[in-house]
């Protein structure tokens, strides 16, 4: 692995990303409900808490919390769009689907992140174990990928096979790139109008080191997930008082190379994740982001009780 300067120093803003809208839901003080602490839209920046709260099983975020799995909504709630429009906080592109990602550290709920996806080419998939210990898609959202969607319905991955099977086996997030030529990515067969080039596999709600399900975010070179998407690989150490502190071993960037050096804003995010262990949605006013970036979303991913990855998306 080469040690180079972080690619995050050279951010190029992209308005045409697959993710257009983000909500951050954290537990209330008494842990009885989830509260929407912040939201952000591409082109409109970050908004603070809007007073919304849901109990377990209620709404998209509440469903993800209760079911302990990523939950997909294939429509755009009209009340949400009305509220975003009224606040002049609507994203630049149209939204076609939402996915709520629950984040756990062992059994402890750390928050739910909701991503609103544009109607551009791409896909999200939730892979869960079936009765013979293979992963099958239990829900998915596909834009412009009819052949890919069809073949996925009949595809199964045993442990260690394909990207979902590898995430399941290792229990950590995986980033796969150059999928159009990679022998490791085998569902695409060229009949779709565009080609998926990168895939991000996230373990969801790990139990005894293995994820209960795997979320896949698939995107094309022309329509990336975010302006910048990074997957940090972390390792944790325990200090004399027994508290865990994570360090970043490497940063893998979608469309870029792997680096080992952190920029200032990345060190700040790591520090906050180490302190609170919660997902972060931060605007340029509260974090010294690279020029051109308006906000950053960070998802800490735990295996057992150790931080193993941080997924960082910048817009």
């Amino acid at each position: 692995m080469s040690s180079t300067e972080s690619s995050a120093e050279t951010f190029q803003p992209t308005v045409g990303s697959l993710v257009q809208y983000v909500e951050l839901w954290l537990l209330s003080e008494d842990e009885s409900s989830l509260e929407c602490r912040a939201s952000a839209s591409v082109g409109a920046g970050v908004r603070g808490a809007d007073g919304r709260s849901v109990s377990s099983g209620e709404g998209l975020a509440g469903a993800a919390w209760k079911q302990k799995t990523a939950t997909i909504l294939q429509e755009t709630p009209s009340d949400l769009m009305a509220s975003l429009n009224a606040a002049a906080a609507a994203p630049a592109g149209d939204l076609s689907a939402f996915v709520a990602i629950p984040l756990f550290c062992q059994q402890e709920m750390r928050g739910v992140v909701v991503l609103g996806l544009s109607d551009a080419f791409g896909a999200i998939e939730v892979w869960s174990r079936d009765d013979r210990d293979e992963l099958a898609v239990t829900s998915g959202h596909y834009q412009g990928l009819p052949s890919f969607e069809f073949i996925t319905r009949y595809t199964r991955f045993p442990k260690g096979a394909g990207l979902p099977g590898m995430v399941w086996k290792l229990g950590v997030a995986q980033l796969a790139q150059n999928l159009d030529t990679s022998s490791g990515f085998i569902r695409s067969f060229g009949k779709d109008p565009a080609v998926i080039t990168s895939a991000l596999g996230l373990p969801v709600a790990s139990q005894r080191g293995f994820p209960a399900s795997v979320l896949l975010l698939l995107s094309a070179q022309d329509i990336p997930l975010a302006g910048l998407t990074e997957l940090w690989s972390c390792s944790s150490t325990r200090d004399d008082e027994g508290s865990m502190t994570a360090a970043v071993d490497s940063v893998d960037t979608v469309g870029g190379s792997m680096t080992t050096t952190l920029a200032g804003w990345q060190r700040e995010i790591l520090s906050r994740v180490n302190s609170h262990g919660q997902p972060l949605l931060l605007g340029a006013d509260s974090l010294s982001l690279p020029a051109g970036a308006t906000f950053s979303l960070s998802l800490p991913i735990y295996r057992q009780n150790e931080l193993c990855n941080v997924l960082n998306m910048m817009f």
Partner: peptide, 10 residues
């Protein structure tokens, strides 16, 4: 060598 993918034939 290992299993790359399993395809159900319906």
């Amino acid at each position: 060598a290992s299993v790359g993918q399993v395809l159900e034939i319906p």
